[in-house]
């Protein structure tokens, strides 16, 4: 019943709608078209193109954290950077901030100054600066104590108590009685830089701590007698190295 009446008026309505729609479409495009460009800007930014600032989604998906080294390098960082509406970021504030190429956005793990991650670089505030990265400062409060104690805190999660290793879909190599550990450079390099799925601990331990844990692994879990000194470790640190940060949130 009612449908008949509707049918009668359908064609003029359609035509009118099309005309008005086209006119308004052009108008609204002029008004709002600016937004359309945003995703491009962001993807270019995400690609890490030099010279642009980086809003990095990478390891930190819970918060938009960039995992660049410099973000966590400065504990005095006040992160007074701002993200402009068009997806690019500008930096202001302390020189330390301006030197950062990516600012950590903190979750619970990364917000504590102890982690070397400035409290101010807080969650959600993806803010960056376009400048040269500065030397990364090592955080040495995450793992503490003797070599044996650091082993328990940092290594045991994968290499297991006593260094016995484990096997699932992949393996964690046993560190006990492992002939590969004869050369002290091998385990030292592993701790500093990681390998494959193993994260680097170069950011989270100082030279003394690395030497102690390597000595524990080489002499207590193996029968080597020579010791690694903090100076040996220092020599293996490449200048300008950006050690991976893993103190951030995910989904």
């Amino acid at each position: 019943m009612a449908s008949k009446r509707r049918e009668f008026s359908l064609l003029p309505t359609l035509l009118l709608s099309l005309v008005i729609g086209t006119v308004l479409g052009v108008l609204l495009l002029l008004l709002f078209g600016r937004h359309v460009g945003n995703p491009d800007t962001v993807s270019a930014v995400n690609a890490g193109i030099p010279g642009t600032t980086v809003i990095d989604r990478n390891e930190n998906t819970g918060n938009k954290a960039a995992n660049s080294s410099a973000d966590t390098a400065s504990t005095t960082n006040t992160a007074s950077t701002t993200t402009a509406a068009d997806g690019t970021a500008t930096a202001s504030g302390t020189p330390a901030t301006a030197a950062a190429t990516g600012t950590a956005t903190a979750d619970n793990a990364s917000k504590t100054p102890v982690e070397g991650q400035a409290a101010a670089g807080s969650a959600g505030a993806a803010a960056t600066a376009a400048a040269l990265p500065q030397e990364q400062t090592v955080t040495d409060t995450s793992f503490q104590g003797t070599g044996a104690e650091i082993y328990v805190q940092a290594c045991q999660s994968c290499h297991m108590p006593g260094g016995k290793g484990a096997k699932g879909a992949g393996i964690y190599p046993a560190l006990a009685n492992n002939p590969k550990l004869k050369a002290m450079q091998y385990p030292t390099g592993m701790v500093l830089y990681g390998n494959g799925g193993m994260p680097s601990f170069g950011h989270y331990m100082n030279d003394q701590q690395i030497s102690e844990v390597v000595n524990y692994i080489r002499t207590e879990l193996n029968n080597n007698t020579d010791k690694v000194t903090p100076d040996d470790v220092k020599k293996m640190r490449q200048p300008g190295q950006h050690y991976m940060i893993f103190g951030e949130a995910a989904g």
Partner: peptide, 22 residues
């Protein structure tokens, strides 16, 4: 659950930084 002890992943998720992304 500690994700580095999970037999089918040996860790929680892929970690990247600006350099490895590039």
């Amino acid at each position: 659950v500690g994700w580095h002890r999970v037999p089918f992943t040996l860790g929680c998720y892929g970690l990247y930084n600006e350099e490895t992304r590039k």
